[in-house]
Simulated assay, not measured.
Amino acid sequence: MGIGGSILLIVVGAILTFGLDDTDLGPFNLDTIGWIFQLAGLFGLLLTLYFWNTRRRTVVRQVPPPPPAGGTMIPPSADEVIERRRTY
């Protein structure tokens, strides 16, 4: 549902519950329908916030390629910056 849909349900439910004078629409009671909308919106909002806070955050780390097999190469330290430039 999302935050927008949840807030929309809460607002429509509050209008149906508190904003209307005539609370009966045939066999339906608009106060009850408004309370149901508000509770569904609140439940959806809490569920959305719960899943937003528990989602995993992925950290991507680049692993340098292994050194060539033929020679011995000293791996650079974490503080070194290797720069290769081509001049034309």
Results as ranks from 00 to 15, higher is better:
Met1Cys: 05
Met1Phe: 11
Met1Val: 02
Met1Lys: 05
Gly2Ala: 04
Ile3Gly: 01
Ile3Phe: 11
Gly4Cys: 00
Gly4Tyr: 02
Gly4Pro: 02
Gly5Thr: 01
Gly5Leu: 01
Ser6Ile: 01
Ser6Pro: 00
Leu9Glu: 13
Ile10Ala: 09
Ile10Asn: 12
Val11Glu: 05
Val11Met: 13
Val11Ile: 08
Val11Phe: 13
Val11Trp: 10
Val12Ala: 15
Val12Glu: 14
Val12Trp: 09
Gly13Glu: 07
Ala14Asn: 13
Ala14Trp: 08
Ile15Pro: 04
Leu16Phe: 15
Leu16Asp: 00
Thr17Arg: 15
Thr17Leu: 15
Thr17Tyr: 15
Phe18Arg: 05
Gly19Met: 04
Gly19Asp: 12
Leu20Val: 01
Leu20Arg: 01
Asp21Tyr: 12
Asp21Val: 14
Asp22Ile: 06
Thr23Phe: 14
Asp24Gly: 07
Leu25Arg: 13
Leu25Gln: 14
Gly26Asp: 02
Gly26Pro: 03
Gly26Ser: 03
Gly26Lys: 15
Gly26Met: 10
Pro27Phe: 12
Pro27Asp: 14
Pro27Ser: 09
Phe28Tyr: 15
Phe28Gln: 13
Phe28Pro: 15
Asn29Met: 10
Asn29Ala: 10
Leu30Phe: 12
Asp31Phe: 13
Asp31Ala: 12
Thr32Ala: 15
Thr32Ile: 14
Ile33Gln: 02
Ile33Thr: 05
Gly34Trp: 14
Gly34Met: 00
Phe37Cys: 00
Phe37Met: 03
Gln38Lys: 08
Gln38Tyr: 10
Leu39Gln: 03
Leu39Cys: 11
Leu39Tyr: 11
Ala40Pro: 02
Leu42Ile: 14
Leu42Cys: 11
Phe43Thr: 02
Gly44Pro: 04
Leu45Tyr: 12
Leu46Glu: 04
Leu46Asn: 07
Thr48Met: 07
Thr48Asn: 05
Tyr50Lys: 03
Phe51Pro: 05
Asn53Ser: 11
Asn53His: 06
Asn53Met: 07
Thr54Tyr: 09
Arg55Leu: 03
Arg55Cys: 11
Arg55Asn: 01
Arg56Asp: 00
Arg56Cys: 02
Arg57Phe: 13
Arg57Asp: 07
Thr58Trp: 10
Thr58Gly: 06
Thr58Asp: 09
Thr58Tyr: 10
Val59Thr: 12
Arg61Thr: 09
Arg61Gln: 10
Arg61Lys: 12
Val63His: 00
Val63Pro: 02
Val63Ala: 06
Pro64Gln: 08
Pro66His: 00
Pro66Ala: 00
Pro67Cys: 02
Gly70Pro: 15
Gly71Val: 04
Thr72Val: 08
Thr72Asn: 10
Met73Lys: 11
Met73Pro: 00
Ile74Pro: 06
Ile74Lys: 14
Ile74Ala: 08
Pro75Arg: 02
Pro75Lys: 03
Pro76Ile: 02
Pro76Tyr: 13
Pro76Asp: 03
Pro76Leu: 03
Ser77Met: 02
Ser77Ile: 00
Ser77Phe: 09
Ser77Asp: 03
Ser77Gly: 12
Ala78Gln: 05
Ala78Val: 06
Ala78Asp: 11
Ala78His: 07
Glu80Trp: 08
Glu80Thr: 05
Glu80Gln: 13
Val81Leu: 06
Val81Tyr: 00
Ile82Val: 11
Ile82Asp: 01
Arg84Val: 15
Arg84Met: 07
Arg84Lys: 09
Arg85Asp: 05
Thr87His: 11
Thr87Ser: 09
